[in-house]
């Protein structure tokens, strides 16, 4: 279980996150959504111990502030939003970098399997820098998957932390990548993802945390938090949520907001 208590982050004198509590359980996808600058990525960085923060984060009962890098690497992998790579490594070499630690310790066939899982098997020996942006993102996902290939290891769940995993993908690959995350959760692993696309989030996430101006505006299942009131307040424009009658999955079209313009206080 991932447990974050009272997370506060200040960057350059500005309070970016203010007293966030978040609990994510294995076996499901927990999504973090919110408008630009609401602190989504900062929250993910706090959860992965990348920014100094007050409050505590524990992963599988271990305090991330005191855990060693290799101990954390064994139970969780992190997909950054943008990834730069120095030096001309090939795609499979990048994926193998994920193998060094974690439950997958050194098993080369896992690298190939992870690459096949994201649909890049035939690009294994191309240079990473030659891939398109979306392919690079999927190659990095393969590296992340290779690091914690088994969703459960030694009786404990492993975790994927994904920062906008589908941001530069076409719709087919968006669904493919979200399916990978869902399969990982279904097999007992935990997934925490920062998401931009509310419809994909509603389709795939079991729990959604809505951030606004560094605070947790709402936390719950898609049907609980994806309401006109919450989303209109969070995004500062009038949004109308609809529901697919057969499954009860909320969805959202930008038409209402586009017609009405920006009205920040609408939903209150």
């Amino acid at each position: 279980m991932l447990e974050a208590r009272n997370i506060t982050v200040s960057l350059g004198g500005r309070r970016v996150l203010d007293g966030i509590d978040l609990v994510a359980r294995p076996g499901r996808i927990t999504a973090i959504v919110g408008p630009n600058g609401s602190g989504k990525t900062t929250l993910l960085r706090a959860l992965t111990a990348d920014v100094p923060h007050s409050g505590t984060v524990s992963l599988n009962g271990r305090d991330t502030a005191t855990a060693r890098p290799w101990e954390l690497a064994a139970i969780r992998a992190v997909l950054p939003q943008a990834s730069a790579l120095a030096f001309p490594f090939t795609v499979i070499e990048v994926v193998r970098m994920g193998l060094r630690s974690g439950t997958s310790g050194g098993r080369e066939d896992i690298a190939a399997a992870a690459l096949a899982r994201v649909g890049l098997a035939e690009h294994a020996h191309r240079f990473f820098q030659e891939l398109s942006g979306g392919e690079q993102q999927r190659a990095q996902l393969a590296r992340v998957l290779a690091q914690v290939w088994h969703p459960r290891a030694h009786g404990a769940p492993c975790w994927l932390f994904l920062d906008e995993p589908v941001s530069s993908l076409d719709i087919g690959h968006q669904i493919e990548v979200m399916s990978i995350a869902r399969d990982y959760a279904a097999a007992g692993g935990g997934v925490v993802a920062v998401m931009h696309d509310l419809n994909l989030t509603a389709l795939f996430a079991e729990k959604i945390a809505v951030l606004s101006e560094g605070r947790m505006l709402a936390f719950g299942s898609p049907s609980e938090v994806m309401t006109d009131a919450v989303l209109s307040h969070a995004y500062g424009c009038r949004l109308r949520v609809n529901t697919r009658p057969d499954k009860g999955v909320p969805f959202l079209l930008p038409h209402a907001a586009a017609g009405a313009g920006s009205i920040p206080e609408a939903a209150e």
Partner: peptide, 14 residues
């Protein structure tokens, strides 16, 4: 480190 400092730490490098 070729992946960046943050990612290097994520894959377990001190």
């Amino acid at each position: 480190l070729a992946l960046g400092e943050a990612t290097a730490a994520h894959i377990g490098i001190p």
